[in-house]
Write a protein that binds this DNA or RNA. Structure first.
Lengths: 196, 196
DNA sequence: TGAAAAGCAGACAAAGCTGTCTAATAGTGC
DNA sequence: GCACTATTAGACAGCTTTGTCTGCTTTTCA
């Protein structure tokens, strides 16, 4: 990848993430990236294409994170907790203003290329949580339900954290996710009953 | 309230809800509302003030809905289910593109009046879910945890529904919310054990 | 050395935005 | 009739936006 393209993607990602697609202009991006406008349009045909390229990069990043976590040999319950800890770290990092896909989703037309990227990402995250539920030993429709519940806690906590500017949503989502896990997993339930 | 102001608020609400604050201009709002520009600026000092007024209206609407549901004599578990059904209806209604507060949140500066309205709303919704948890007979920190979990399922399902353009997130959130309720409430747990 | 590729600065067009202002018109209470 | 208020259309200023284009310079690589 050329230096100019790299810098453009990096700068645009930072700005889009901070203030949202619609609130950041091409002029600001090229100024901050110190790239000439003509060069920009040699790499990307439009602002929207830049946005799509950025989101595809983020998608790859998350995909790697999910793969790594699924391959991790720890028990599933620890990995669910670890995922929420990872999200917590991201939210705590400076300038974070919510899931890039959710934030961008409202600002692009429904039939755009960007929307397709967003849609694909959400699908992938959902199937990640489904896999996690199956790893816990839950089967069939119950695994889908548990995975969806985790996904919604994931989405909800990140969104809420952005809305209120705090990290309690992440901590509370982790607790709820583990409670649901304890409720759903046959092994865990047995352990809990024997504790009582 | 004057006819012009009413029509402006209604039109702006629809458009802001559909495409987001930043993607809708004053010119389009006044054209669709069939109100002269000068009249607009006699009612609202700025576009941002219009947005804040709109969100305050939405806030009142939700506040009434929450009050009504808390006063409802049905058992808490039914009311939790009813709340998710209400959200489901909203999401299904035409042109709905996500929680107005979440959608607007990313498009306004952090210190604006609009941000204050958003913040207040999120606080109020949170305390609604806390009240609901206490109605279920859960006490202290457990009530806060349960209420927060419900809140996150609420936020997550509405956001996800908007992202993927489907209503399964609402249905799955309802299931998870009821599972958490069954898990948390002493009465429900007893009932469940006696069933087994 | 020399050709091809990449990047540069910046003017420019065409359109959009918010917000101001003028001047005329419609309705309402007295 | 008369004063007062609300509303109208629309020109306008001043700014920002995306995207195109020209002409020039730097880098790269054989």
């Amino acid at each position: 990848m050329s230096k100019a393209r790299e810098r453009l993607l990096e700068t645009a990602g930072r700005l889009f993430g901070e203030r949202g697609y619609e609130c950041v202009g091409i002029n600001e991006i090229i100024a901050k990236a110190e790239i000439a406008k003509a060069t920009f349009y040699q790499h990307f045909p439009s602002k929207e294409a830049l946005c799509a390229a950025w989101l595809r990069g983020v998608e790859e990043h998350y995909a790697a994170m999910h793969r790594e976590l699924l391959d991790d040999p720890r028990p599933a319950r620890k990995k669910v907790a670890a995922m929420f800890d990872l999200l917590s770290c991201q939210v705590k990092s400076s300038g974070y203003t919510g899931c890039p896909f959710c934030v961008t989703s409202t600002m692009v037309p429904a039939d755009s290329e960007v929307r397709q990227v967003i849609f694909g990402f959400r699908e992938r995250v959902r199937s990640f949580w489904h896999s996690m539920a199956r790893e816990l030993g839950v089967k069939g429709v119950a695994a889908r339900n548990l995975g969806d519940a985790w996904l919604l806690l994931n989405t909800g906590s990140v969104t809420e954290a952005q809305n209120v500017g705090a990290i309690w949503p992440l901590e509370q989502a982790k607790k709820a996710a583990l409670a649901l896990a304890a409720h759903a997993s046959p092994k865990a339930r047995t352990a809990k009953v024997s504790q009582a």
